[in-house]
Simulated assay, not measured.
Amino acid sequence: MLIITIVILLLYLLLIGSFAYGFDKVKTTPLEDVKAKIDFSMIIPFRNEAEALPDLLASILELNYPKHKFEILFIDDDSEDDSVKLIRSKLSKSKIDFSILHNEHHSNSPKKDAITKAISQSKYDWMVTTDADCKLPKYWLDSFDDFIQKNDIKFIVAPVTYHTTTSFLKRFQLLDFLSLQGVSIGAFGINKPILCNGANLAYTKTLFFELEGFDGNSNISSGDDIFLLQKAIQKYPNKIQYLKSESAIVKTIPQHDFKNLVSQRVRWAGKTSSYNSLFGKLTGIVVFVMNGFLVCSPLLYLANFISIKTLLYTFIIKFCIDFLLLFKTVRFFNQESYLASFFFSSFLYPIFSVYVVFISVFKGYKWKDRTYRK
């Protein structure tokens, strides 16, 4: 059993260590004052987001980018609240070019349907996607414009984090989410991109149609971001980059309670079996096995398969390598103060992650007042 423990630990160390190394290989991109050149079509699907929309709309009104160089396509997915009314009341008096489309369902993924419809009706070639529960930084579009002008690219992945983390549950989510952001950045640094987030993504319309959009994964309710990334990597591996810029950080909100948190994470986990990336699947397996081992280790100790010393060393080593990657990540996002919750979270995370994986295998989930089944 000791040999198995060492093998699992070494694989985990190698994996997370490579992400920590790759994190520094992705250079931070400073925003420079250049003349705006790129025209953007901003895509924002929404469903019953009246509570979150005021923050998004306020941040849109504060965008620094020239108003005549972008449009916003909101896609209403059968909202039953005042979302549509709110958007019109906030933006109708501004000079922003916006439209509200009604979603048409053609697949098992309403969000993919919404994005596809918006792209088909967009005016410009560069699409920028975000979510209705986000806050956009003032120089968001400026950051994309500057990056596109300086690089020959077709697909851009950009940073996302949480705000309003006022409870331990929300701080736990933040640290979990930032660990995924660290993996996303680190994977780009070792030329093995595996993660992205649709709350902050940009790609060309030309590329979207060349990749035939979401064909091939429209039966999966989530994954409008990662599956498109994987298709882009297969076609243009050298035309995809990560925009590591503080000026491009989009902020979203964590889930309000544990039930919604589990539903969200089950939704995320449910698509991993359909990944095309072997490295992505390997990453998921190694992380799951490491966490599964820690969850089972008290029983293994009681059954005399491992010693308490082995258990303690394993946890300490995992804690240290996790902390290294997370420290780099929180420093980039300027959220170092939340590291105070990491020690207690590190005990809970293996249990939580294993629980989510098992739930995702055997059960569906509820999201945006809709039920999705396995």
Rank of each mutant, 00 (worst) to 15 (best):
I4C: 13
L11H: 01
L13V: 13
L14M: 13
Y21F: 15
V26Q: 11
T29M: 01
E32V: 07
I38C: 02
I38R: 02
P45Y: 01
N64F: 01
H68V: 02
F70Q: 01
I72L: 03
I75F: 02
I87D: 05
S89W: 00
K93M: 06
E104G: 02
S120G: 06
S120W: 01
D125I: 09
T130H: 04
K135R: 12
Y139H: 15
D142H: 12
F144N: 01
F155H: 03
F155E: 04
V160H: 04
T161G: 08
S167R: 11
F168K: 04
V183G: 02
P193R: 06
I194T: 11
G198Q: 06
A199Y: 06
L201A: 06
L201P: 05
F208G: 05
G223L: 11
L229P: 02
S245I: 13
P254I: 11
D257H: 10
F258E: 04
S273K: 14
Y275R: 05
S277Y: 05
F279N: 04
K281G: 09
L282A: 15
G284A: 07
I285E: 11
L299G: 11
L302W: 13
S307K: 04
K309W: 12
Y313D: 10
C320R: 09
F342A: 05
F344R: 14
K363P: 01
Y372N: 01
